[in-house]
Nucleic acid binder design. Structure first.
Lengths: 358, 358
DNA sequence: GTGAAAGCGCTAACAC
DNA sequence: GTGTTAGCGCTTTCAC
C-alpha cells in the first residue's frame, strides 16, 4: 500500500504494450532512440491505463543529474532586512523559468550562523546549479564562492557582485537609478540632498551611493560625506534617522532624501511625520525598489522600480544555459554579468507641484 | 572535471581507512549496523581528507525516498491575491522545520490553468509529503485531494478546509478572530458594522463571516446580509468598495468595517480617504493578517494577527510525523486538523478615543 | 564488526 | 526499431 509497486508496474506496462521495458523507457523519456510511432502509441496508452509514471528519482540517479535548481537564501528572521516583496518577486521569476525548462526548485534556507558550504550541495548532487540570494561581501562568503568556482559548479548571484572576482550575476543598474533620482530631485528644485544608504557588504549599496555622488558632481553640486546616513535596510533603521534628518533640515537646509530602499524610506516617512515634517511639502523623499507598499503610504512614495521578477527569471535562464553547457561538453561556459535597467516612478512624495499628484 | 569522480572517491576513502566500501557507507549514513568506534573515526577522517560526501541522489534512490517536502503554491500573478507577507511567513515556517528534520524543500508553482495532478508528484517520487498552500474549494481541487488521500499520500492543507472531507490541515481560528473584532468594535461604541469578505472558495472567508455573524447575534444586533460586501482579497477590490461603504454610511449610519484581509482594508482606507472620510474618526476599520504593512498606513490599522510562521512550521512538523509513520509501519496515520489562535492587535484605525493612539 | 553481493528503477551502449 | 545487458552509487541482507 505504498502507492507504488515499483519496478513491477513498468514491467506490466511493457507486457500490456507488447514491448520490452527498455522501450517503455525510450518512449516515456522521449529523448532516446527513435521508436515506431505505433509502438509509442501503444506504450503511452498502456502507461496511462496502468497509471504509470517513471520515477524521477531513478531517472535522475541514472542520469547523474539532480534536476534541481537550488536557491540559497538567508532564513528570513522575524525582522526582515530584505522585504517579502523582494523575495516573492525574485523567487517567482526563478520558479517560472525553472519550470519552463523542466527543473525543480530546491529551496535552501541558510541560517545566519550556518557555514556556507555551497559546494557540498553539488557534491551531494542535490542541485545541478544554484542561485544565491542575499550574498554578503564577507570573507566566508568569498571563500564559499571561490570554492564553487574552483569546482566549476554553475552558480549565479542575484543583486550582488564581488569586486576583484567575476562571478555570474544578474543585478539591477542601481547606479543609474540613484543618478536618476538625484536628477529628478534637482528638477524639482531641490539642492541639498541627503542619501540614506544600507550596509556596504551589499554591492548595491555601494552602487547606489556612487550614482548619487556622480549625479551631484555632474550637476556641479559638491558631494558632502556627512550627508550620507547609514541604515540597515530595515524600516526601523529608517525611522531612527528621522531626528538626524530633521536636524540637518534645520541646520543645513536639507530639502530631499533618497533612501536606498522602500522600507527605510517608509520608516523615515513615519519618523518625519511624528516630528511634524510633511514629506512632499517640507522635504522630498524617494525610496528604492518600488515595492507594493509605496502606493499605500501617505503620501505615496516616489521610488525606483527594480524588475525583481525579471532578475529572477533571467538569472535562472542564464544559469540553466550554463548548466546545460557544462553537462554537455567542455565548451568553456561563458560567464555573464547582467545588469537590468531600473525606472524612476514619480509619486507625490517628491513632487512639489501640488497639481501633479498622480 | 565534473567536480566529482563518482564511485571512485568512495573506494579511495575505503582504502585510505582500510575498510570496505560498505563500511564507509555504514559510518557516513549513521543509521546502519554498529561499527567499531575506532573504525568509524578512521573512515570519517579519510572522508574529510578526500572531501567525500555521499551522493544524496544515490542514497535516496536506494532508500526509495526523495527526502523532499513538496510545497505547492499558486504561481503568484503580478496582481497578488495573497500577500507576499503571507507566503514569506508560511514558507519560512515550513522551511525551518523541514530543515530541522533533514528534509529539503521542493517548491512547486502551479499555474492558474494547470491541472492539479498532485498524486503524480508522489508517483514520480519527487516528494515524500506535500503541503498545499492556497487550495481552493473547486471540483478539480477536490478531485486532486481525493486522489491523494486514496493513494494514502501524506499531505497537509494550509489555511483551508473542505466541508465533508477530513484532510490534514493547519489553520488559524478565523471565526474567533472575527468575533473578537466585532466585540472590540462594540466596545468602541460602534453598532452598524459592515463586513468586507473574500471569495467563499476559501474556507477562511466563510469562517470569518460566521464569526462576524455570531458575535453580532450574541450582542443582540441583527445580522443584515446587505452589510456583507465582497472583494477578492486584492487591494484594488477593497478600494473599489469605498463608494459603497460611503453610501452605506450616509444612508444607514455605518460606523465600522471589518475587512477579511489587510490588503482590502488598505485599499478601502485609500478609497475612503479620497472621499474625505477619515478612518479612525468617521469610521472604524479593522483588517486581518496583521501583515507588515498595517503599521505603515495612516492611520495604522487595527488587525487580527495570524501566526503564519507557526502555521507553516506546525504543518511541516505534523506532516513529517505522518511521513515517518507511513514509511515505518502500517500504523494508521493519525489525521490532524489544527487551529491556531489569532489575536486582535488594536491600533488607531479602530480607536475612537484620541488619547489612546498607540 | 565487517566484507561480499544483490538490488533499487532507470538509461544507454550494444547487438540483432 | 527494438531487445538485452551493464552500470549509476548507494543500502542492506547475509555470511563470516
Amino acid at each position: 500500500m505504498t502507492g507504488r509497486e515499483e519496478g513491477l508496474i513498468r514491467k506490466k506496462v511493457a507486457e500490456l504494450a507488447g514491448v520490452s521495458e527498455a522501450t517503455v523507457s525510450r518512449v516515456l523519456s522521449g529523448g532516446g532512440a527513435a521508436v515506431k510511432e505505433e509502438t509509442a502509441r501503444r506504450v503511452i496508452e498502456a502507461a496511462q491505463q496502468l497509471n504509470y509514471v517513471p520515477s524521477a528519482l531513478a531517472q535522475r540517479f541514472a542520469l547523474r543529474r539532480s534536476g534541481n535548481l537550488g536557491v540559497i537564501l538567508p532564513m528570513l528572521p522575524k525582522v526582515n532586512l530584505f522585504s517579502t516583496y523582494y523575495f516573492s518577486e525574485v523567487l517567482s521569476g526563478i520558479g517560472m523559468t525553472a519550470k519552463q525548462r523542466g527543473y525543480d526548485l530546491l529551496l535552501l534556507f541558510r541560517e545566519p550562523d550556518e557555514p556556507r558550504n555551497y559546494a557540498n550541495l553539488f557534491r551531494m548532487q542535490k542541485v545541478d546549479g544554484c542561485i544565491i540570494i542575499g550574498a554578503q561581501d564577507v570573507p566566508s562568503e568569498r571563500e564559499a564562492l571561490a570554492e564553487l568556482k574552483e569546482g566549476s559548479h554553475p552558480f549565479c548571484l542575484v543583486n550582488q557582485r564581488f569586486e576583484g572576482e567575476t562571478y555570474n550575476s544578474v543585478d539591477a543598474d542601481q547606479r543609474t537609478g540613484s543618478s536618476e533620482a538625484v536628477k529628478h530631485l534637482l528638477e524639482q528644485g531641490c539642492r541639498q540632498i541627503c542619501f540614506l544608504n544600507g550596509p556596504s557588504v551589499y554591492s548595491n549599496s555601494r552602487d547606489r551611493l556612487e550614482g548619487y555622488r556622480q549625479a551631484l558632481e555632474e550637476a556641479g553640486i559638491p558631494f558632502l560625506p556627512e550627508r550620507v546616513l547609514l541604515g540597515n535596510y530595515s524600516r526601523k533603521s529608517g525611522y531612527m534617522q528621522a531626528k538626524a534628518i530633521a536636524t540637518l533640515m534645520r541646520e543645513q537646509g536639507i530639502d530631499a532624501v533618497i533612501a536606498a530602499n522602500d522600507r527605510m524610506a517608509i520608516g523615515l516617512l513615519q519618523g518625519l511625520k511624528e516630528q511634524g515634517i510633511k514629506v512632499g511639502e517640507d522635504i522630498a523623499l524617494i525610496g528604492c525598489d518600488d515595492s507594493d507598499v509605496v502606493r499605500m503610504t501617505d503620501p505615496p512614495l516616489t521610488s525606483i522600480r527594480v524588475p525583481f521578477f525579471e532578475i529572477g527569471s533571467e538569472a535562472a535562464a542564464k544559469l540553466l544555459d550554463a548548466v546545460a553547457q557544462a553537462s554537455g561538453e567542455e565548451t568553456a561556459v561563458s560567464p555573464f554579468e547582467i545588469k537590468l535597467p531600473v525606472k524612476l516612478i514619480e509619486r507625490p512624495s517628491s513632487m512639489f507641484d501640488e497639481s501633479m499628484n498622480a
